[in-house]
Design a protein around this nucleic acid. Sequence first.
DNA 1: TCTGGGGTCCTAGGACCC
DNA 2: TCTGGGGTCCTAGGACCC
Length: 408
Amino acid sequence: MSKQDGRGRQFSPDPIDDAAATIMHLDMDAFFASVELLERPDLVGLPVIVGGRGGRSVVTAATYEARKYGVNSAMPMSVALRRCPNAVVLEPHFERYRHFSEVVMGLCGDVTPLVEPLSIDEAFLDVAGARRLLGTPWEIGTELRRRVYAETGLHCSIGVAATKFIAKLASSRAKPDGLLVIPLAETLGFLHPLPISALWGVGSKTEEQLERLGLRTVGDLANTPLTSLTKMLGAAAGQKLLDLSWARDARVVTLGREEKSVGHEVTFEYDVTDPATIRRELLRMSDQVAVRLRKAGMVGRTVVLKLRFGDFTTITRSRKLEEHTDLGRRIYDEVVEIYELVGRPDSRIRLVGVRMEQLSFAADAALGLWETDEGWREAEQAIDAVAERFGRGFILPAALVTKPNERG
DNA sequence: TCTGGGGTCCTAGGACCC
DNA sequence: TCTGGGGTCCTAGGACCC
């Protein structure tokens, strides 16, 4: 009943043509590591880890050969190398990853305009409309995987299902280098035996809590009263998990979403106690943040300082500005003031970060006057003054001066 | 084993207003 | 003198994801 492709990977039963399974999730396999191997074909088949070389670096990505030794991303490099001493460590090259990401997203765009990039190496596609032209989801997925490999030399895995969440689970189950379609009728049979950590939003902490309730599988959670879940996890999380456990997921594939914040942070190789060093870093990062804002044509309203101390405790302090800005100097002045207010000049500092929140487009923020009733009244008075002098006919059509929040 | 850097979302408390 | 109730905004922290 199952089918294999040229490389011997096992696939779902065939034929699969479920009219409801129209959401596709594409996920690159060991993306950063695979991109590095394009330049180092001599390392193919060996345990390779991508990450920094500093004493405090962590694993950014690892080949499947390295994962066999228990190496995983976000793991401290020191641990990873203890588990896999002969791993080859390569430094990351983010521009290359961005390049290949764009190529792959472009190939997705050939399938359907409804592509939602989730991260640098993942995307959702809504293929409902592509079926007529390009075939079943199975055929579309097979062809897309073939093209990705042909154009980049990189493998990816694809999951297809009726909802985003199940499609994503399917792609991770298909890894590496596979395709898995979950017909609607088989969804719960696929979902319920999985461990609760498979649910979106269940990380190590939540998993621990749920296990204390005796819940180990998604099916266990699905049969738990909502009140038990919300009591433990809060209203939003409890409801969301219960919904996901029954494969209820109304999210649609959306085109892009606007950024909500822009920030930078660095962990020092050694803890820093010298405030001048901290200020220098804050200046550098304020500038970086400002440059990124300007490139995006955006301005930010809230400045956030982040500090992590030698004992790993972390604090954030934020301040809302009088007006939006995209200027490094403005951000720096504010963040330094916040830093001085924290008043721990002699602490050992492990990490500093600067972030801007409450972003809007610079062009919109320039109209910020209209955001307040006072501003609006002033404007009306100004218009009246002009009208008195030159007559109403001189005034712009009302539609052009409608408050932004009253438009469509 | 000792914990990066980029983010998002949720919660909770306090201030403030009516 | 002892004290409501709701709504909104702001801030801090934490869990989570890739």
